[in-house]
Write a protein that binds this DNA or RNA. Structure first.
Lengths: 345, 345
DNA sequence: ACATTTTTGAGGTACGCCCCTCATTTATTT
DNA sequence: AAATAAATGAGGGGCGTACCTCAAAAATGT
């Protein structure tokens, strides 16, 4: 015979179906003794409630929301694509998701938008936003309203109950460091670090990890202070030009941002050749760069996995289930030309 | 209102529930015209059959079997662990799996064991076995008996309808090649390739990819013919000793098998130091080697992902559903000390 | 136009669970 | 011991689908 059902449970525990139901759904009106007895029986006979049937019965839907920055870059394009793909493929699991876009550098508006979410319309939120006190407080309020929260790509280490779905950025920085150390062989010279802004915790952690490894394994290289582009193409072009002109001995370049398109363009204008270039995120652009050798390696996180993992974790939180830790761990992937996954349809 | 149900479908198509049911479950007794009309309506109103409710109604269970080689190595340990983990976490999805172990180098017995599988007891099989005519024919018979099949880790390129869950081994070999080329810097000398057997297609493909890249990027290195250990510790020790003694200029070693424990031990006895060593599969042993620097890089495939992906593909085949291509693509992962994922519970 | 076959409709039961109502039993209080 | 409150049982309807039976309607052949 198959898995035990509520009926089996009731019989085994010597109570009625109604009582089993009360216990399973934590409804009032059951003596503690009885509750304990049922719980004990649950363990004894190995009863597992059939989530699918339960969801069907209560015609439950998991309504999830992704909070994403409102600017456009290739990484966010991938995220959005992954979300809409997941939306298709998880429809039959009664999970639907929508996207809300908020200005990434206005913590106040992010917080306001989060505060507007009602538990009547939303069961869980995945938040990709810089870590600020306002956002942290909003997350606390979401929790107290009973809305599940995960931090998406950008960690919110000070926010409680916000499970982080993303890579360990310090380890990512260390990984880039190790590759840089290896790929530059025995060469000596300078290493440039370019990023959009060092304000974000992610960048700081990547830099930290990178420096740690460079100091440990590649003292022959001089790592320059991070140069910030602030997402401004002109500024990018200028700082890249200045840096390369004033330092003829650059042997490696670390592009730290999610979107490295502009910076790569500025570098190409300057005609980089020998330098080892390592960037983040596998996008159409970095793919092309890897293929023709303009970039040597890309450190990335599987965007589809990020999205699906967020969804699974949120669903588990809402349904008060457990998750498979190993499945939810986001890997720091090293992509070379040789192990680059094909594009999918 | 929510998703359309069969009732909505029936109304929209102007037929009865019974007819909708016949069409949905491909039962006979419906005119082609009517079938087409219903199908068209399905698309128009975006009807998606509720898999959970369907499974509930037919109290369907997906009984899957993993066919694994019966020898013991760390890689198979991981596979078995992943299967039992999946067994726990997918119970509520009505999926259960068991393991059948067969002698890996007896194609006849493998084929016999496969032929014994009855569609009454098994819905799908994941097969990890060397590619032989016997196995290929058995797979064909499985298909005709209506049992879904995937090739697990070892590809079965000549077997039709056996979706391959695993990495592209040629690309894996190329990746190792690229890393070997990079990590050896400008050094010159020999590169050893050690494997259990070159009989298997996987090994051949890895070697092919490896050679391709070495020829292209590292002509300074001389890649030696593959040395086969046949899983024999004594033989392993002997060939390793001979190789290292007769060639003092070895700068790199590629360990090609799934389980590299013995070979590593033999190498350590010889006291390797400067060589770049690259192996396959992230196991407790290779983890330790990466950590203390005995190995420089590991090329691996996420075992949990392999197992879950096989399960999803088999389930989709059985239920005649589609899969999300990007989710099922197994990545060739490059693991260095810095991006090594933590062990999970 | 008739008989025959094929298609279609109507309706019921089941799957495992949720959620509600009402009667009955058991414990608690006075 | 009686009155009140709390706990439990019994039962029904529903979620969206599968699968079965039987009757009615439509298409087919002669």
């Amino acid at each position: 015979m198959g898995k035990p059902t509520t009926k089996d449970l009731a019989r085994a525990a010597g109570v009625s179906l109604a009582t089993v139901d009360r216990v399973l759904n934590a409804r009032a009106g059951v003596r503690q003794v009885t509750v304990d007895r049922v719980q004990k029986t649950i363990k004894e006979i190995g009863f597992v409630r059939d989530l699918a049937a339960a969801n069907l019965a209560r015609s439950k839907e998991y309504r999830l929301v992704f909070f994403l920055p409102d600017h456009d870059d290739e990484f966010l394009d991938l995220v959005r694509a992954a979300i809409s793909e997941a939306n298709m493929s998880m429809a039959y699991e009664r999970i639907s998701m929508s996207i809300i876009r908020v200005p990434s550098n206005d913590p106040h508006r992010i917080a306001m938008a989060l505060d507007e979410l009602s538990p009547k319309l939303v069961d869980g939120v995945a938040i990709m936003a810089p870590e600020t006190p306002q956002v942290r407080d909003s997350i606390a309020r979401l929790n107290s309203r009973g809305i599940a929260v995960v931090a998406f790509v950008s960690n919110q280490p000070t926010a409680e109950n916000a499970y982080y779905v993303g890579i360990n950025n310090k380890a990512a920085g260390r990984t880039v460091g190790q590759l840089m150390a290896r790929f530059t062989g025995e060469r000596q010279g300078a290493v440039l670090v370019l990023t959009e802004t060092m304000q974000s915790r992610d960048s700081q952690e990547r830099r930290l990890g990178f420096d740690y490894i460079m100091k440990k394994y590649a003292q022959r290289l001089h790592v320059r202070p991070s140069m910030e582009s602030y997402g401004d193409p002109e500024r990018t072009a200028k700082i890249v030009r200045t840096a390369l002109e004033s330092q003829p001995d650059v042997v490696g370049i670390y592009l730290m941002s999610h979107d490295i398109g502009e910076t790569m363009q500025a570098l190409e204008v300057q005609g980089v050749q020998q330098q080892v270039i390592i960037g983040h995120e596998l996008t159409p652009h970095t793919r092309a760069c890897l293929l023709d050798g303009r970039i040597d390696a890309v450190i990335t996180q599987d965007v589809g996995h990020l999205v699906r993992s967020s969804i699974r974790v949120l669903r588990a939180k809402v349904a008060q289930l457990g998750t498979v830790a190993s499945q939810e761990r986001i890997r720091i992937e090293i992509i070379l030309r040789e192990n680059m996954p094909e594009i999918d349809g």
